[in-house]
Design a protein around this nucleic acid. Structure first.
Lengths: 151, 151
DNA sequence: CCAAAAGTGTTGTGTATACAACCGGCCTTA
DNA sequence: TAAGGCCGGTTGTATACACAACACTTTTGG
């Protein structure tokens, strides 16, 4: 006799895009946070550390654009990395990892690869491809390659 | 000679699922927040108000499960609605909109329909379908209909 | 050279979210 | 009936993020 439904699902094309993305983001973020916990970092921190590792001296405004994070939000995230001693003090001159930051970034990358592998296995290539398709379409529209505008 | 790349894109199936979802979530949330701003609510608030509108007396734990939001986080979101006077005081007895909450919820729903329409037009059915596919696959795996576990 | 403009980062304020610990009610069971 | 457990909700603490306003630096046009 059908209990109150408490599960999300529904392929209904009428679902709320924002709500769905936010929910998926929460779920997947939790998964990654759990994996990174032993290193003592969150996904957001790990992501920044790995970005800086891959491109030492990168500027905040560059990361801000690449990750589509508001510059003020990123500034505070950077202050967090600073508090933990993972990056050097002179942030206005580009971001550089400290020795410790370097070690943490490497451990993060190892973990990231494992989790990514696991996610790929469980969800399958098709799903990742589907997400990529949505993503590419959004960016394509945002870039104005279609019609005009889309904030 | 190729400037430093600062744009996201890349259909590469090797992209980070968490990073991508978080980015998409930020972008789309901003879009909706902008649309809801005239009413003085954020997307998250509007979403809760509309849920309560659709199901008066709903309990926190139900919304928590449905939206996959941690119960403590939801508790604080509810306190926000309370501060704004959009829901009645006795939250432990189920959530109910006040008169004002009702008005706001209705305006939110109107706006939501407009924005959804606009998003659907710009991105196209195929993209929404792709997102739904990813989403359904994730929930299907989470529900353990494949192999065992996936937190 | 200087003043306006544009670009980069920070601060003030508020919301959204998580995890762990706890509280109070209800139910089970020894 | 009293000791536990489970459940739903709240609180303590810390991140993550946004918008607006500001400060500082660099660039640009005269």
């Amino acid at each position: 006799m059908a209990q109150e439904e408490d599960r999300a699902g529904a392929t209904d094309t009428n679902f709320c895009v924002a709500g769905r993305l936010r929910m998926l983001s929460r779920i997947i973020t939790s998964l990654y946070n759990e994996a990174f916990a032993p290193v003592g970092v969150t996904y957001a921190q790990a992501s920044l550390l790995m970005s800086i590792f891959a491109q030492p001296g990168v500027r905040q405004v560059m990361l801000s654009r690449r990750l589509q994070i508001e510059k003020s939000a990123l500034s505070r995230d950077v202050q967090g990395l600073l508090r933990h001693g993972w990056i050097g003090e002179n942030v206005r001159n580009g971001l550089y990892l400290t020795e410790e930051g370097n070690r943490v970034a490497k451990r993060c990358h190892t973990i990231w690869k494992e989790v990514h592998e696991q996610v790929r296995d469980k969800l399958g290539e098709d799903s990742l491809q589907a997400l990529a398709q949505f993503s590419d379409q959004l960016f394509s529209v945002k870039a104005g390659r279609n019609h005009e505008s889309f904030p």
